[in-house]
Write a protein that binds this DNA or RNA. Structure first.
Lengths: 219, 219
DNA sequence: AATTGCGGCGTTGTGCACAACCTTGATGCA
DNA sequence: TGCATCAAGGTTGTGCACAACGCCGCAATT
């Protein structure tokens, strides 16, 4: 089930690598990705790599122009606000559409996230916090069995993930870390109560608050 | 704004053509699409066509296997039910997230759809009804300015569109046409009242009912 | 001095040949 | 007869060479 052919597995690996780099601002908006350079780095030819870039373009993270290059997209504030609107609603749906039964293993995972978050409180790093947030997001979507809902949520997440990271430059990193840890605590409490809807509502509320904080720094 | 380069425009055209064929069951589930044959039909080489097939695979409509072929996917009843669940919720959100102001032009378009639907009542055809339903769906999503919501709704629609068409073989076509026309009437009434949420709720309700009718014929 | 035309350079898009792979059928052997 | 093995044919995946295209700088012209 989890076995893939070499080609597909490499495709997924490259896609995930590039997506992460874009969302962690290793490739900031406006930068140009060279097909040839990336192909050389990953030890393939341009052909398989072009398929990865095509998917990234479909997801709205890059844009290819004939004769110009493949450019990392910038984020339009207005569209981002509407995307956040939808993300908030989808986060709430995770608690209503086919929520998974909350097991001890799930709670243990949540505890693990809280531990990692608390560690970050003492010496907060932007990148580490963003990465933890990304992992925690995947954990959040795994709380529903509705595959379509998971897929759409992730698609929208990666489209907006860069916003927070960009805004953090103008926000207080310690504050952001504290807010994130408090979300982890609220979430853990809901999960201990075996209340999937409450856990989803925690995420929903925090997406709203995050959107509000981020939109303030926007000019 | 609506101008595209030749390459992109052709890509969109091919993608739309193949997607429509799959959803209208010209290519029933399980059939094999030959890259070479399709390339010849559309007058290109395999390279641009492969990009189209890759997108269709990403959308879950086909599945490529090395050395075997590109096969039109079949629909898993369980997953489809969950996808319908999400589609229903998204339809409701169209009325809440950035609904467009309802203009006379929109109402005129709705009247046009109703007229076409009523014409079909006298001599119903499965394919024509499915096509009209597809066009009407796009009209429904155009009632929100939230681009992400439109995109996700369409993505899910095309993933489930074949279900109804398959089920129609076991349902009464005249009944289905009548139900569809009654949806058009309800929808038009809501639009005349300039009530976007009511229009969205009409769609929401009909998606629920459609899901129920379709799931009955499933063994 | 400003502008316009042009040519070089780098980039993405395309076509083709070949590699990798799976299926199928025949064929030889126990 | 049953089965294993292998070869042939067809399909998707890959690599490479070239075409198409846009940008930039230079130079000739007005």
């Amino acid at each position: 089930m989890s076995e893939y052919s070499d080609a597909r597995s490499r495709f997924l690996r490259l896609h995930d690598a590039l997506r992460t780099r874009i969302c962690l601002l290793d490739y900031p908006p406006g930068s140009r990705l060279s097909e040839e350079a990336l192909a050389a780095e990953f030890g393939t030819s341009r052909t398989p790599l072009r398929r990865v870039l095509a998917k990234l373009e479909d997801e709205g993270l890059v844009q290819s122009q004939h004769g110009v290059g493949t450019i990392v997209t910038d984020v339009d504030p207005g569209e981002m606000a509407r995307t956040y609107d939808l993300r908030r609603e989808l986060a709430g749906l995770v608690g209503r559409l086919s929520p998974v039964p909350i097991t001890d293993e799930i709670i243990a995972t949540a505890i693990g996230f809280l531990k990692q978050g608390e560690d970050l409180l003492h010496h907060p790093e932007t990148r580490a916090l963003a990465k933890l947030n990304m992992d925690y997001f995947h954990f959040g979507t795994s709380l529903t069995d509705n595959e379509a809902l998971r897929e759409m949520s992730e698609r929208l997440y990666y489209r907006t993930a860069r916003i927070w990271l960009t805004a953090t430059a103008h926000l207080d990193l310690s504050d952001e870390a504290a807010i994130f840890v408090s979300e982890l605590r609220d979430s853990l409490q809901a999960l201990r109560a075996r209340d999937a809807q409450a856990a989803a509502d925690v995420r929903r509320a925090h997406i709203s608050l995050c959107m509000a904080r981020v939109s303030i720094v926007r000019p």
